[in-house]
Amino acid sequence: MTEPQDKSRRKFVAGAAVAGAGLGVAALAPGLHLIEVAGAAPQAPRAAGEPAPSTVRWGMLIDTTKCATGCDKCVTACHTENGINETVQDVRQGSQWIRKIDLKDPKNGRTHSLPMMCQHCEKPPCVDVCPTGASMKRADGIVLVDRHICIGCRYCMMACPYKARSFVHQPLTAQNPEVPRGLGCVESCTFCVHRVDKGLQPACVEACPERAMLFGDLNDPTSEIAKRLAQEPATQVRADLKLNVGVRYKGI
């Protein structure tokens, strides 16, 4: 999963995952096994026009004990996948759908490195405050911005406790047609919704060389992420706000 994959391979992996879902091991050919491929393709592709299922709650588990300081492959993959390619003179005006944060506990000197992005809250403050309803949560828990009705007021950015939203400060070129962006609108991590709807993983998860990121359905007790969350301690960032976030961190 460390190398860039072309579309046909993604489709192949997705198909294999569906076939081997829940097994953890898929037989691809005699003598050849793709370990843990079930985690790589969490669901079958969803047909165009079919609504997102409310039975699913997409989430992510990030193992900070595996996440390496200085590694930003997830960030690069996100930028490539979502067409975040503009050059900004001031980094604070650039889009940061995902960023690496380094932590140090001053009490014991322990350090952590982790990716921070939209936490896809069950009760997202950005959705509450959006005057037009452009900030919205899909039935499957993915928090998105409707580019057609975002007026660029940035109230959602004031409300987000994770600083996970970005405002497009300058005109854009060379966009990915599957990921529309726009000058003057707010945007954030979509969990690569366009890929998830095809039965694929978010680009950051696929790019992580340490397999520190696990994506899946929190509502499905048979999913890899649900199993691990049942067995391993994981933290919600700013749990005090009781937003019931979709992204959980292990090791902090």
Binding site: P131, C150, I151, R154, G182, L183, G184, C185
Partner: peptide, 23 residues
């Protein structure tokens, strides 16, 4: 606003949980 041209959107789309929306 980032999209001042969408004033009509602000007038026609209303989110009742938004303080901006109340305004």
């Amino acid at each position: 606003l980032g999209r001042a041209d969408r004033l009509v959107v602000a007038m026609t789309h209303f989110n009742p949980t938004s303080v901006f929306g109340w305004n």
